[in-house]
Amino acid sequence: MSQFPDSTLAEQNLQMSKKSVLELRNVNIFYSDNQAVNDVSFNIRRNKITAIIGPSGCGKSTLLRSLNRMNDFVDGARVEGELIFSNENLYGKEVDPVEVRRRIGMVFQKPNPFPKSIYNNISWGPLINGYNGSTDELVERSLKQAALWEEVKDRLHESALNLSGGQQQRLCIARALAMEPEVLLMDEPCSALDPISTARIEDLLFELKSSYTIVIVTHNMQQAARISDYTAFMEMGDLIEFNVTKKIFTRPAMKRTEEYVTGRFG
């Protein structure tokens, strides 16, 4: 277990797994013949923010996409190992990927609202999944959770494409939240946004933490340090180190991690 050289860490790990939502065990991901992720194992804790950091091309986005089977849509992508969620391996033969994605939501790098009204953006997911409560309430609640309600409450039926980039991304978060997912995956959600929008989304993530489990991929180390509870550092498909964020950024166990977080490379 090279990534947990410290035995106390391993114990700590054991303790924490009680609160795990998702457990990755020896995950390998391939694109056709290329291996993008090598033998990665760690646990994702309930109601915490887990950040995955690393230089671009290190496999962090690929790993994230494997957590709700979005890699199914990439030709030639193959996942080996176990990803335990709700007592099942996500890649088990019996598992329905559609059901997985209902329970594990995702926000993408580029805001991707549907070319429909703000209201329909939120309500569509729950409606196709058999939601039969009040959609008005659902839309209001989700938009409030995403801290967007005040800005859009008077134009819910206007096209979502009229919103600014930052608003669009919060709409995408609201859309994902409307499904009440157990885990929310975020793939560099701020990389296409300006600093002010980024700050608003970071604030939002803090608030969401109490009721959601969040996994966020970011190339921005300050962001990872600010918002996350746990951090996984990856490099060239390997998980170099996984630990509580504070440790990663103050007393990393691995030299590579230290070099990366202190900005000596990457």
């Binding site: 939501g105 993408f108 569509w124 997911g125 196709i128 859309r175």
Partner: peptide, 24 residues
Amino acid sequence: GIRNAAYSLGATKWQTTWAHVLPA
């Protein structure tokens, strides 16, 4: 991105196609 968004909300292929790909 539109397809990804729909799939990540737990839509099936046809739901995604009918509600988003076809109108767009």
